[in-house]
Design a protein around this nucleic acid. Structure first.
Lengths: 339, 339
DNA sequence: ACAAGGATGACAAGCGATTGCCAAAAATTG
DNA sequence: CAATTTTTGGCAATCGCTTGTCATCCTTGT
């Protein structure tokens, strides 16, 4: 009876069951499954067959407990509903899966506190972290980086390995585009104050416009959501600028909606350039001119960088910085400056 | 020296460290932390203080190993970049977090095989599963449901507990809307053949149109992506219908783009109704009339249903079915039938 | 043909928590 | 104040796997 219970369907097969069926010791099974080279070819096949027959899946818990590795990476994003992160998430998911890792997705809701909290709470359950557009301060980031392996995306390098979008180049392209259309009064519509990307974009904007002797304005900060677009649009219009470079597409799309409501024609009265080329940028009205980057690839690269630190043996050159190229995608939201 | 090593920053504090600092046995610490009622109030406070002081976080691995529970729920979605799932994901994430669970997000890439595979592979690492728009066959689903606790979203009930969108009501509302605008030739644009939702929508469409003696057409199946919209639009136009009810917004938005390319005016020449009210439905061109549901809430409810099975002690009534209401959001993609 | 060396596999000690069982202490009662 | 009940806390086994150590066996070189 007792034996029957042990074999009841509820019970999961353990490494011991496999060892018994294959006629070897449990340690041999363990090695055969996780360290193939150490075990005889034919024995391993016998073990694998036994495992398959029993439908055996190793317990990640037990495995993690004794090995100290969880084979899990946590990906922290500020807002899971922001399409910008879709592609990052998909990129990391792909790459992690390929390497046999599990992805733990966390939405930090644009809050530095939640981010730091997650970093703490999950330090035991993840081998490493990927922070997309981290809202942490430099000090917090440095502390976190000292505690556990992590890679940031769109965040100052030096503190931790980073994948960044080539913002200066993007801004230059956008400005050249606007200048070639005859614009001279250009407004920068800012994103979150805690966003490093925003700071970088603003900085590049200032440098470039100074060289070109353009009249510039800036408004913000605004939350990176379409709902903030109305306020952003009103503020931008108020400056008297004829073109806006907007922190991201979400905000830009929101502005488009507001401008239409107010009867301000885009691009006839006002040109708009967004950033990120997110889902929706191609079918909003008018379709948005925007600065595009290979975002999914950024997620992939971030994972590669992290994994090469986690597994130095395989790891090729463990870079500390990867820069993703950017190009301007011109659609219908930009046009000649009003005369 | 050895002691210094033990206290080195790399080492994580264990339950033993906490016990020692608080002057109690490890079992007392364990109980104080996970079964508060069983331990003296003041002792527990002392323990909690010690834990906080050491910055102690229990190892989820060890915890899971001995308790058999992982405090983790896996959420399987067919396509992580489909905005429809964003709100579901956010809903599940919220609810799970509130209950102290961790969410494991898996993108099954619209593949029944990947879905079944994930279900198998992760059966040891998750206490339960939530399947959003599962692509499994009924038999597969039944088998999976027998192996582990799971809740489905938008899938036939009876096999497993389910949260469904009230599709028939949505279709009725859409049809009434179109009829009231004078349409009599209506086309159903179908989604994936393996989608239960699609089957349900098609069924409701047939029943309702039969009662109203409308001329109907159907085209499809199409992949639920904007890129399939071109083919869908061409097929729909070819039928001669003056209005389309489209499987989902993604497809509908793709159709909008194609129709514009072809110079077919929406809604003057053709009215379009989508489904889901996803991100983008309000700012596409023209803004899309669509059937909206409280999707985030669907995710929440699914989690509640699952958790009440996992923890029967707290669990209120463990429902097997929840129906989410639907309403038609009328925007600019529908208008009077061409005369 | 024998010793040295390399493969291979068995044994058993943990990894860090949970939990059943029981003893000690405290609170309650007559 | 003794007897009884209720709390509270300690001990130790256990979860399923990894991994260091060591014995065994099969290859080789001489």
């Amino acid at each position: 009876m007792a034996e029957l219970q042990l074999q009841s369907p509820g019970r999961q097969p353990t490494i011991r069951d496999v060892a018994e069926l294959a006629g070897v010791a449990t340690s041999t099974v363990s090695r055969a499954l996780s360290n193939p080279g150490r075990v005889n070819h034919v024995t391993r096949e016998r073990i694998e067959e036994a495992a398959a027959q029993l439908n055996y899946i190793p317990s990640s818990q037990a495995r993690g407990l004794s090995s100290g590795r969880t084979q899990t990476v946590a990906v922290l994003v500020p807002d899971i509903t922001n399409p910008f992160y879709f592609d990052i998430i998909r990129g990391t998911q792909h790459q992690l899966k390929a390497a046999g890792y599990t992805q733990l997705l966390v939405d930090t809701e644009e809050s530095a506190e939640m981010e730091a909290d997650a970093l703490q709470k999950m330090r035991r359950s993840a081998d490493g972290f990927i922070l997309a557009a981290s809202r942490l301060t430099d000090a917090q980031l440095a502390e976190a980086a000292a505690q556990q392996p992590l890679v940031t995306i769109n965040r100052a390098p030096a503190i931790a390995p980073t994948v960044v979008i080539d913002t200066p180049s993007a801004i230059i392209q956008a400005l050249e585009h606007l200048v070639s259309l005859g614009h001279t009064r250009i407004c920068f519509v800012g994103g979150p104050a805690t966003s490093w990307s925003n700071a970088k974009r603003w900085q590049a904007f200032q440098e470039e416009t100074a060289e070109r002797k353009l009249t510039t304005f800036s408004v913000g900060p605004f939350a990176p959501k379409t709902t903030s677009g109305a306020a952003a649009a009103d503020a931008a219009v108020h400056t008297g600028a004829t073109a806006c470079i907007v922190f991201n597409d979400l905000l830009a799309i929101g502005m488009l909606q507001r401008l239409r409501e107010r009867g301000i024609r885009v691009p006839d009265d006002m040109s708009i350039v967004g950033c990120d080329d997110i889902f929706g940028a191609d079918f909003c009205n008018p379709p948005l001119t925007t600065m595009a980057s290979p975002i999914e690839q950024a997620g992939r690269v971030a994972v590669s960088m992290l994994l090469s630190r986690l597994n130095p043996q395989y790891g090729g050159t463990s870079r500390r910085l990867a820069v993703m190229p950017t190009h301007l995608t011109v659609r219908a939201s930009t046009g000649a400056a009003p005369s």
